[in-house]
């Protein structure tokens, strides 16, 4: 375990030094995400001009939800997104070989080797927005409830990671991952709205098979509603199932990997 920690610290060091070589890009990325936050906040503000509640939440609760979304997105962008983006290129160019021969888990290394230092600053900003949204919330919020919320939000980030890589792993067979990547990001839009607006079979799919609706909404529900045990249990089960599926798909994918570029 300590070997993996040391390895990850090295990855962090290299990522930061690389990010600081491209300073303009560093600040462009920060600006991009700040604008994305602003767009979401204005969207919710405009929506709540016409309805008092959305998915059972008032504007103050929707702000906490939106801020949670920013944090979850920033965590994903910082830790996993670049790695998932690069993965199909490594497979298609045959560059995966360099990672497979190393004496560490290939999934660990390929999932975490690049730390997006520029997105890390966004994570700091997103946490600030979340702190502001929680502080301005007019109702009582207990420290325990907030801790559970944060823990579930992080679990949601882990589920996002599993989903993203599950969408990328078929590149071992398909070779062109552009469609799958677009599908992942297309479906990821479901994360950005309260889960209670989804009904029927779509809701069942979005909370189990393609659990986009639970990533940020469920932690927020755990914060404002009473059924925390069921919410945490649901998220835990989904996370375990997806991670198990990812491990199986990864192993099968490696077996199918020919090492020849395409």
């Amino acid at each position: 375990m300590s070997r993996y920690l040391v390895l990850y610290l090295h990855c962090l060091r290299f990522s930061f030094s690389r990010a600081m070589e491209f300073r303009v890009d560093f600040f462009f990325r920060v600006g991009m995400d700040v604008l994305w936050y602003a767009v979401h906040l204005v969207f919710f503000w405009a929506i709540y001009q016409h309805a008092p509640l959305l998915g059972g939440w008032d504007f103050d609760q929707a702000l906490v939800f939106a801020a949670g979304l920013f944090v979850a997105d920033a965590v994903h962008m910082t830790l996993f997104s670049n790695n998932a983006w690069m993965f199909p290129l490594l497979v298609n160019r045959g560059d995966l070989d360099y990672y497979l021969v190393r004496p560490v888990s290939s999934l660990f290394f390929l999932s975490l080797r690049e730390f997006a230092a520029n997105s890390f600053l966004n994570l700091v900003i997103a946490v600030g927005v979340l702190a502001w949204a929680l502080a301005r919330y007019p109702g009582p919020l207990e420290a325990t409830a907030v801790s559970v919320y944060v823990a579930l939000l992080l679990l949601g980030c882990f589920i996002t990671y599993c989903l993203h890589f599950l969408f990328m792993v078929p590149v071992f067979w398909m070779h062109n991952a552009a469609g799958l990547r677009d599908t992942f990001y297309g479906l990821n839009r479901f994360t950005a709205r309260p889960d209670a607006i989804y009904t029927g079979w779509v809701r069942r799919v979005l909370t189990t098979l393609l659990p986009y609706a639970i990533l940020v909404s469920f932690p927020t529900r755990a914060l404002f509603e009473s059924d925390v045990g069921a919410i945490a249990g649901h998220m835990g089960l989904v996370a375990a199932a997806l991670f198990a599926l990812l491990l199986v798909a990864w192993r099968r994918g490696l077996r199918a990997y020919s090492s020849a570029s395409s």
Binding site: F22, V24, D25, F28, R29, G31, M32, L35, W36
Partner: peptide, 11 residues
């Protein structure tokens, strides 16, 4: 001038 304009396009 810039090393990466992707962020500008997304913004």
């Amino acid at each position: 001038w810039a090393d990466n304009v992707w962020s500008l396009l997304v913004a």
